[in-house]
Amino acid sequence: MNETIFYVGGSKGGVGKSQCCFALLDYLLDSGKKVLLLETDTANPDTYKAHHSYEHEGLVCEIANLDVSDGWIEMVNMADQFPEYCLVINSAARSNSGIEKYGMTLRETLSELNRELVVFWMINRQRDSIELLRGFLNAFPDALVHVCRNLYFGTSEKFELYNGSKARQHIEKQGRTLDFPDLGSRVADRLYSERMPVSMALSKLPIGDRAELRRWKNACTEMFRTAFGEK
C-alpha cells in the first residue's frame, strides 16, 4: 500500500478547511512522513502560499483546479508520480460540483494507485454542512470519512443538527466524529498574513502567540491520533 491520500473538505467557505490543512501538514511532517500538498482553492491559496516558500525534500507543494477535468487528471498523475508521499488535498469552497462531475477520475484509480482515501470533513453548525457532506458521500461511498466539528463555532454540544443526524450515524460506522480545536484569531491571522507553516511560526511569533499555537498544535495532535487509532 502506497501512502494515504488525505482530502480536507467541507465544500463551503469559512468552515476551517485551510486551518485543518495547516494542522494536518504539521502533524504528518512531525511524524516523519513525506507530504505532497495539493492546493485546489485557486482563488485564495492560503495553504499553498504559507508552505511553498518552505518546501524541502519531504514537502512538495502544487496547485490544481478541481472545477475542471484536467485538474483531476493532474491530481491522479501526481499521486502516481509521488507514491511515497502522503497526498494532502486542500479543497476549495463549492467543490461538490467538481466532485459530482469528475470525482470518478480519482475514485476509479484508487485501487491502481494502491492508495487509501481518508477524508477530514469540516463542519459548522448550519444545515448545509450536513447536506454537502451527503453529496460527498454519494460520490465517494467507500472513503474513510471523519467529520470535524470546528469548535470555533461553539462547543461540541451546540452542533445539534449534526449530532442527532443520520449522517453522523453513517459516518461512525467506519469513521469518527472529531472536535477540531479553536485557534486564537490573532494567531490564526498571523499564520495566513505572514504565510508561515506551524513549525516556522513556533520559532518566529512572539512568546504569547507561540504559547497559544503550541496549545492548539497539541490539541490537534490528539485529534489526529484519535482519528488514526493511535490512542
Rank of each mutant, 00 (worst) to 15 (best):
N2T: 00
T4H: 05
G10F: 00
K12F: 00
V15Y: 03
S18I: 09
C21A: 13
F22R: 09
L29H: 02
G32N: 12
T40Y: 10
D41N: 12
T42I: 14
A43P: 00
N44W: 06
N44A: 14
P45E: 14
P45A: 15
Y48T: 07
H51N: 15
H52G: 08
H52N: 13
Y54T: 03
H56E: 14
H56S: 14
E62N: 12
A64P: 03
D67N: 14
S69D: 11
W72P: 13
E74D: 11
M75S: 09
N77Y: 11
F82M: 09
V88D: 09
V88A: 08
A93P: 09
Y102K: 02
G103N: 04
G103L: 02
M104S: 15
T105E: 11
R107S: 14
T109H: 06
S111E: 08
F120A: 04
I123F: 03
Q126R: 05
D128E: 10
S129N: 05
R134K: 15
L137G: 05
A139V: 14
F140W: 15
Y152T: 06
Y152A: 02
F153N: 08
G154K: 02
T155C: 02
F159M: 08
G164W: 00
H170G: 01
Q174M: 00
S185W: 09
L191M: 08
S193G: 03
P197H: 03
K204S: 14
P206V: 14
I207R: 15
A211T: 09
W216C: 03
A219M: 09
C220W: 02
